[in-house]
């Protein structure tokens, strides 16, 4: 299937999944286009549209948690960042995605344990 067409299909499908979770596509259209294109490539190579910013190990338990949108598997961590790890999705109230940083998991867990 044509890459552009598949990108549009994924966009429509993913929008329906992330909307009830309180997320939307990033307003940074350039990064969204790039990431969706990478996901189509990953789908062609590995069978599923995996997160382009997290590594696959080949272990099913690990990799299935990285199929986009992977928000449900990392909900608390992503909510703390107001974005998913790769930045394809942001919280619905986010207007400036550049203001959001990637918080390492270790840092997130430590701050959560302090609370």
């Amino acid at each position: 299937m044509d890459t552009k067409k598949r990108m549009e299909q994924l966009r429509t499908m993913f929008e329906r999944v992330v909307d009830p979770l309180g997320y939307k596509f990033s307003p940074d259209e350039e990064i969204v286009e790039f990431l969706l294109e990478q996901e189509v490539m990953l789908e062609k190579e590995n069978g599923s549209p995996y997160c382009p910013c997290q590594g696959l190990t080949g272990e099913r338990d690990h990799d299935m948690k990285l199929v986009c949108p992977c928000i449900p598997f990392h909900r608390e961590h992503y909510d703390a960042m107001k974005r998913c790890w790769c930045g394809l999705y942001v919280h619905k109230d986010v207007k400036d995605p550049d203001s959001l940083i990637q918080i390492p998991l270790k840092e997130f867990l430590e701050s959560r344990n302090k609370e």
Binding site: C53, G55, L56, W85, I101, Q102, P104, L105, K106
Partner: peptide
């Protein structure tokens, strides 16, 4: 070896990972 290094920092292969001496920065910052 990258997997082992990342798991030693309690990370799950979330990239980028920058290492300088003993210090590690996970994520683009």
């Amino acid at each position: 070896s990258i997997e082992e290094e990342c798991s030693s920092h309690m990370e799950k292969l979330a990239f980028p990972v920058a290492i300088y001496g003993d210090d590690v920065v996970v994520g683009y910052d």
